Simulated scan of single mutants.
Amino acid sequence: MLGELIIRDAVTADLQALQSLYQHLSTGDAVCSPDEAERIFARLLLYPGSTIVVGEVDSRIVTTCTLVVIPNLTRGGKSYGLIENVVTNADWRGFGFGRQVLSAATERAWAAGCYKVMLMTGSTKPQTLAFYERAGFAQSKTGFQIRRHPVRPD
C-alpha cells in the first residue's frame, strides 16, 4: 500500500536526499559538495517566498521542484515565480506526486504575491509536455536560452 504524500519546504537536512533525487532529472550530473549545497540553499532562501518544495512518502523524498520568487518593476511591482528542477523519482512516477508538488509551489507563489508562475522544459517528449498541461501550465510563450554548457540529452 502506498503511503500518503506529504508536501513541505526543504530544510538543510534534506540536501543529500535532494542531490540523489536530482540524478533522476539528469543522470550523471555533477553533484555539489555538502558544504557548497548548504551555501547555495542559504542563498536561495534569501529571496522571500523562494523555496525547494519536496514531497515525501514514508519519510523518503520522492518528488521536488524549486520555486524562485523574482522581484519585478512591472505589473505594479508584482513579483513572478519561476519553477525549475522538477523531478520525481522514476520508481514513484505515475501517482500524481509531481503534479501535487507543482500545485504546492504555485500556491506558494500566489501567497508571495506573484502575478504569474513560469517554467521551462527542454524535453520534447509528448508525455512530459502533457504532464505540465495536466498540472495547469499552458504552453503560451516562446522560450529562448543561451548556455555555457551543452544541453543535456532528453
Results as ranks from 00 to 15, higher is better:
1 M>E: 09
3 G>S: 04
6 I>F: 06
10 A>K: 00
14 D>F: 10
14 D>N: 13
15 L>K: 07
16 Q>N: 13
16 Q>H: 15
19 Q>A: 15
19 Q>C: 14
20 S>K: 15
22 Y>D: 14
26 S>A: 13
27 T>H: 15
29 D>S: 15
31 V>G: 12
31 V>S: 14
33 S>K: 06
38 E>A: 11
39 R>C: 10
43 R>L: 09
43 R>D: 08
50 S>T: 02
50 S>H: 03
52 I>G: 01
57 V>Q: 11
61 I>S: 03
62 V>A: 06
63 T>N: 06
63 T>A: 09
64 T>F: 01
65 C>W: 04
68 V>H: 06
68 V>N: 08
74 T>S: 08
76 G>I: 09
76 G>R: 14
79 S>N: 10
82 L>C: 14
83 I>M: 09
85 N>I: 04
85 N>W: 00
85 N>L: 01
87 V>E: 07
93 R>H: 02
97 F>N: 03
99 R>W: 00
100 Q>N: 05
102 L>C: 06
103 S>T: 13
108 R>P: 06
109 A>E: 01
109 A>G: 05
112 A>W: 04
121 T>Q: 15
122 G>R: 12
124 T>Y: 15
125 K>I: 09
126 P>R: 14
129 L>E: 12
130 A>I: 08
130 A>V: 10
130 A>G: 13
131 F>P: 11
132 Y>R: 08
133 E>C: 10
133 E>P: 06
135 A>F: 00
135 A>E: 03
135 A>N: 05
137 F>W: 00
143 G>H: 02
144 F>G: 00
148 R>V: 04
149 H>V: 05
151 V>T: 01
151 V>R: 04
152 R>W: 01
153 P>Q: 02
